[in-house]
Simulated assay, not measured.
Amino acid sequence: MSGAPRGADGRFRNTEAFEPRGLADVLRWQWQARREQQAAAQPTPTQPADLDFLARNRGGAIGPAVTWLGHASVLAQFGGVNLLTDPHCSHRASPFSFTGPQRAQPAAIAPQDMPPIDLVLVSHNHYDHLDVATVQALARQPGGPPLFVVPLGLKTWFARRGIAEVLELDWWQTALARGVELTLTPVRHWSSRTLGDRMASLWGGFAVLAPDMHLYFGGDTGYSPSNFIDTRAHFAGRQSAAHGGGFDLALLPIGAYEPRWFMAPQHVNPEESVRIHQELGAKRSLGIHWGTFKLTNEPLDEPPRKLAEMLRTAGLTAQDFCVTAIGETLRLAPRTPLPPP
């Protein structure tokens, strides 16, 4: 499979026609949001992270486990590594300290309290997925920095901040890093941190394969009729029943989806997340990207309720696709290939 397409201007493109919203649409959305703003009926569930377990379970020594830190940040322990997705522990998802979306609650673990991080996966450069203070804190961790694995075009952002331990990947490009296999996979989204860099760097999801777990991280995505079916097909030879089946866990976004006329091209809703779960052939999924930052019109506590409705409609249960409290650790059974005949 080929890498990400680019336009004549050198900017990255999605696999289907996609145009990021312009200023007129943004203003219309903001006007609508002020009229339709809804507060959450209940706070996002949180619980103290089990730091003792996380320290003892370095790299999945006790067994594969994932801990939701808030929004799209997840600490995954398997394959001999501590892996962190989309690092964000700061108070705001914004280029400014005084304005922009605020966290509804602190991150479950501050960077200085995390167990040693070996790998950091960055899906794209939006402010709610890539936070400079968190990245810099991780780069200063005792024992040396983690390896940051990023889509094409983001390495220079890290270099400007004095961080050299960075690996760039194109769509479908695979690398062996810290003993696990990483592949950047296509998702439907876009990138930008300034007025002039829209689509200048790539975006994507990640497939992470290790003997004890196959993990999929969806990052941030709108629904695509091909990307997730293609991802399943790409790994089919590695995920037959004899090899242990499909992804043991998929980390899928379920929030930041209203209004649909504005958000549908870039953010899935729970119905689409369930469809992605099915198209990936994941054994189990965990809902992320909700309950942390008020980015869109739906209440912060709505995505899990909508997810439960969509699961019932699809004939699935929370055992197939769950949510957890921020700080909660989900432990999984190690991947087990079928014994030889």
Score class of each variant (00 low, 15 high):
Leu152Tyr: 10
Ala233Leu: 12
Gly219Gln: 10
Pro116Gly: 05
Glu272Val: 08
Pro211Glu: 10
Leu251Phe: 11
Asp320Ser: 13
Ile276Val: 12
His124Thr: 03
Leu338Glu: 15
Glu181Leu: 14
Phe98Gly: 00
Asp9Phe: 00
Pro151Ile: 04
Arg232Asn: 09
Phe235Pro: 08
Lys283Ala: 14
Asn269Cys: 06
Ser285Ala: 15
Arg335Met: 02
Gln32Val: 01
Ala318Trp: 09
Leu147His: 07
Ala207Val: 12
Asp320Thr: 09
Gly22Pro: 03
Lys306Asn: 09
Phe158Ser: 08
Trp203Ser: 04
Thr15Phe: 03
Pro145Glu: 05
Met114Gly: 02
Ser240Cys: 09
Phe321Val: 06
Ile109Asp: 00
Glu298Lys: 12
Leu338Met: 13
Phe78Gln: 04
Ser273Asn: 03
Thr231Met: 07
Ile229His: 03
Cys89Tyr: 06
Pro142Phe: 01
Asp301Cys: 12
Ala137Cys: 07
Pro341Ala: 14
Glu279Lys: 12
Val74Lys: 07
Asp170Met: 04
Gln38Gly: 00
Leu169Phe: 10
Gln112Ser: 15
Pro253Leu: 00
Val268Pro: 00
Pro146Trp: 07
Val74Met: 01
Trp261Ala: 05
Ala49Asp: 03
Arg34Thr: 06
Leu307Gln: 06
Arg198His: 04
Met114Arg: 15
Val132Gln: 01
Asn269Arg: 07
Gly70Trp: 10
Asp212Leu: 03
Ile62Trp: 02
Phe78Ala: 07
Ile326Gln: 13
Leu167Cys: 08
His88Asp: 00
Ile163Asp: 05
Leu167Met: 15
Pro337His: 01
Ala39Lys: 15
Asp52His: 03
Asp86Phe: 14
Ile62Pro: 00
Gly245Asn: 09
Pro145Leu: 00
His71Phe: 12
Glu258Asn: 06
Asp212Arg: 11
Pro303Gln: 04
Met114Thr: 04
Leu169Pro: 05
Glu36Phe: 08
Val323Arg: 08
Tyr223Phe: 13
Asn82Asp: 02
Glu309Pro: 01
His129Pro: 03
Asn14His: 12
Val166Met: 13
Phe158Arg: 13
Ile254Lys: 04
Pro225His: 15
Leu119Thr: 11
Leu195Pro: 13
Val268Tyr: 01
Asp118Gln: 04
Phe262Cys: 01
Val180Trp: 05
Glu328Ile: 09
Gly222Ile: 10
Asp230Arg: 07
Ile288Leu: 11
Glu258His: 11
Gly162Thr: 01
Ala333Asn: 08
Thr292Val: 06
Ala236Pro: 13
Glu328Leu: 04
Pro111Gln: 01
Ala108Met: 08
Val135Leu: 12
Ile163Tyr: 12
Tyr127Ile: 04
Asp118Arg: 11
Ile229Arg: 06
Gly22Cys: 09
Ala139Glu: 04
Ser240Thr: 15
Thr15Gly: 02
Asn125Met: 13
Leu209Lys: 09
Leu23Ile: 15
